[in-house]
Design a protein around this nucleic acid. Sequence first.
DNA 1: ATACTTGTAGTCAATATTACTATAAGTAAC
DNA 2: GTTACTTATAGTAATATTGACTACAAGTAT
Lengths: 239, 239
Amino acid sequence: MDAQSTSMQIPEDEKSVILDSITIDCVIFGFKNEELEVLLVKHKEGISKNKWGLPGGWIYENEGIDDAANRLLLELTGIKDVYLEQLRAFGAPDRFPLSRVITVGYYALIKEEDYDLKAGYTAAEVAWFKVSEVKDLIYDHQQILEIGQKRLRRRIKQEPIGFNLLPEKFTLLQLMHLYEQILGYEMDKPNFRRKILKMDLLTPLAEKQKDVSHRAAKLYRFNPETYKKLLEKGFNFEF
Amino acid sequence: MDAQSTSMQIPEDEKSVILDSITIDCVIFGFKNEELEVLLVKHKEGISKNKWGLPGGWIYENEGIDDAANRLLLELTGIKDVYLEQLRAFGAPDRFPLSRVITVGYYALIKEEDYDLKAGYTAAEVAWFKVSEVKDLIYDHQQILEIGQKRLRRRIKQEPIGFNLLPEKFTLLQLMHLYEQILGYEMDKPNFRRKILKMDLLTPLAEKQKDVSHRAAKLYRFNPETYKKLLEKGFNFEF
DNA sequence: ATACTTGTAGTCAATATTACTATAAGTAAC
DNA sequence: GTTACTTATAGTAATATTGACTACAAGTAT
């Protein structure tokens, strides 16, 4: 979202407290039906009317950019304490056609189950899209999305951040599918299982999957203590 | 370098063509005498007079931020085509005391031998410092430096970017020392040699080291073709 | 000639990876 | 309930990698 695209919505007296040539845009990833998804908003006004783009907004003058990104995310999705990391600044001189605006890209990982579409915008304006099918976003948002995907791919190989996309309880196969989806290649079930279990990162639960038409798999929970230890020591999630 | 700190140096008629609340700051790494170094400049005017900070500057209104970073680097060091990558935007509301300025951090790797200190500034204003000894930089530059180090540490484990810090011809031990310096731990010589040679990333030269008071080591050159192949396929530089 | 320093080669046990096969535990169809 | 089907989970075996070493080569300095 860029300054001019929706500036009519901002009352005059509020304009003075936001920075006017820097915006924030968020790539919000979710995972549903074995597919990586991204949350997009449809612009209502301005030159990008009726086109889809990344959710974003302005930074208040007394607010840090990370704080601004967290606030925008809360305003949009109604959830807080999500995994959120800055991608980088995007500043091609012609990235926004009406004036020189630099945007700071962020990417977030959320559990789709926790998220209620109606919390912020109405359903007509915001929706999940399969990442693989997204195209023709406004401005340079397609590029920001790509950089976000690239970052996610890198991160997931070194930190178990994938857990932010899954429900609390999940099966090993779900986790493996998440990895396959993000990394873009297939894996071997027994090998994946062995490697991830040896890391001692998952806590097995007494529970099992329900309502599946085949042998129910054991459910696991992510073990944050081991995660911390592994982070300090450094490790490799390559499969 | 922030807007106000040296604003007196900019003629009035040039002010209009730069962006006024965004700057660029560069962490320029070098490697000399087995130590990782960083290039700093001493501020001459403004509130940070006589204090050391990262070299930086403004972005022209018709210039992309990556272009601006490359230009600033050329102006400062006289060299181009260096390894340069954006770190991220730094935007704490109080990072610059006089006004709200967001800076975009970059980090560069250069071969110190290629660099002539006198090309840009005079020797009194710019100097190399051992990274381990740098402290009390202006504003949030200490943080930017740390983030730069962290990024370098990460990158060097996945891409052989270390070559950008070494001279064209180098010995295996020099390369290993570079890794040790950046990663902060010691390595085993025979094992390092074996692993890196197997990657087929180095081209052995007929030449040997000169003027050393011990057995001269063979010199190697970096092989860019293998590098490309390895990058596509993905690999691990962990030692 | 000897000590000393660094380069380079090689060894070997432990561990990890890869590509599998095999079996267990369920559901669904007949 | 027996059979087919699906997914879960266990195990195996060849191969490659790692990590901690030893040994020796090739120079310099005394």
